[in-house]
Computed example of a mutant assay.
Amino acid sequence: MELTYAPELEAYRAEAAGWLHSQLSGSFAHLRGVSDHVTQIPERRAWEAALGQAGWSCVGWPAAFGGRDASIAEQVIFAEEYARAGGPERIGHIGVELAGPTLLAFGDADQKARLLPDIAAGRSIWCQGYSEPNAGSDLAAVRTRAWREGETYRIEGQKIWTSMGAIADWCFVLCRTEPGSVGPKGLSFLLVRMDQPGVTVRPIRQMTGESEFCEVFFDGAIAQADDRVGAEGDGWRVAMGLLAFERGVSTLGQQMRFRTELDEIIALAKANGAARDALIRQRLVTADTGLKVMRLHALRMLSGEPGALGPEALTYKLFWSNWRRDLGELAMAVGGREAELAVAGGGFSPLTHMFLMSRADTIYAGTNEIQRNLIAERGLGLPREARG
């Protein structure tokens, strides 16, 4: 496993770092360090457009669709420099990191030509229609249904915990197109425009006071037959392929943000005297060690064939989500009583906000229990437990 970068890549790093520093010190300085997905939406759309115009939105994509044909090493470098520069959380990330790669892998030529350039240029924002009230971690239990009417599908059902559903232009929806089917059989993967009759979005207020998540109701909403990805009834294969992209290169940028959070906790511990507590120091060292292990594991995970992740990727989500849950608890321990209070004007300090958001880390994108099942069944080849 190669843990260093070739000298010729330093020019690429300098180009990326220079562009990001210029933009985030200039016209987009007000977005530096913004860590939510719900504020300054017009400005965030402008940021997505700027990334696209400069070719930095989807660097690993083919140039024909707005990318740079970047190698894995170049993609990692950009992810690291983006985090190092304090780039805002991307409201386009579901399109860039999930919908786009899925279209590249499973979409037809027409879908790629119609949809990918708008994602890369920041013209379309996407959300994910997977979880339902009775089908969260058990994704194969989805009940949202769709039926064919000529060249369209009609969709009835409900999705929940839909990140950025309130601002998205498109949603990819896993739904049941074969009446009477159960489990992963009979599902299809449809691309649905959000701005149409029959789509109702209700924001969900979170304990941070924000509403990043939404409920989405489909009441006769339409998806074009041309916007079905893969064959009818083959949606499970596409859906599982999409989930694999969550373990991709963006994990390195995620870790850079984790490093920033940990460094802020360390600085606070030194400033308020919490670092004098031996147990706090031990927890800080444990967090630092865990982050270094996480980075080495991610590099190993990405060191195989481009676009192919081995069984070691199955452990990544379980590791990072538990680590960050513990980091949030450490932030509160270091912050003391002040961390339990809202700041002037409402809201919370960045570290308290991080703690509140981290409570969901071990739930979304697959609970810890589901992740352990995946490790056992797919990674270790253990049999599924018999169900009565």
Rank of each mutant, 00 (worst) to 15 (best):
I265A: 05
V238D: 00
I266M: 09
L243D: 02
G248T: 01
T251L: 05
G241S: 05
A239E: 03
F245M: 02
R259Y: 07
V249G: 00
L252T: 14
V249P: 00
N272I: 11
A244W: 05
G233S: 01
A274E: 00
M256C: 04
Q255N: 04
G235P: 06
T251I: 11
A244C: 03
A278Y: 09
V238K: 09
R237L: 13
D277A: 14
E232H: 07
L252C: 08
E246C: 15
G253W: 01
L252W: 09
R237F: 14
A239R: 10
W236P: 01
A274S: 08
L243R: 15
A267F: 12
V238L: 07
M240L: 10
V238P: 04
F245D: 00
D234F: 05
G235A: 05
D234Y: 03
F258Y: 10
V238H: 02
G273Y: 06
E246T: 15
L242I: 12
A267M: 12
I265H: 07
R257E: 03
D263F: 03
L242R: 13
V249A: 05
L242S: 09
A267N: 11
V238F: 07
F258D: 09
M240P: 04
V249F: 06
A278Q: 06
I265F: 11
D234T: 03
D263T: 08
I266E: 10
A239M: 11
E264F: 12
R257A: 03
G273C: 10
A278S: 07
G273M: 13
S250I: 06
A275C: 13
G248R: 01
A278G: 10
M256N: 08
G235C: 04
A271L: 09
Q255H: 12
Q254S: 07
T251P: 00
V238N: 02
A274D: 00
D263V: 04
G233L: 03
A244N: 05
R247G: 04
I266R: 15
A271F: 11
A275R: 13
W236H: 12
M256F: 11
K270T: 13
A239G: 04
M256Q: 09
G235N: 01
R257D: 00
D277Y: 09
M256T: 09
V238Q: 02
A267C: 05
E246M: 13
R237M: 15
E232N: 04
L243V: 10
M256R: 13
A275T: 12
R259F: 08
G241Q: 05
W236A: 12
E264I: 06
I265M: 03
L242G: 01
D277S: 14
A278P: 07
A269F: 05
R247I: 10
E261Y: 13
E264L: 10
Q254M: 07
S250K: 14
V238M: 08
A239L: 02
F258L: 11
E264G: 12
I266Y: 15
R259G: 03
R247Y: 06
F245P: 01
A271I: 07
E246R: 15
E232P: 00
L243P: 03
L268Q: 08
Q254C: 02
F258Q: 02
K270G: 14
T251V: 11
G235R: 06
E264W: 10
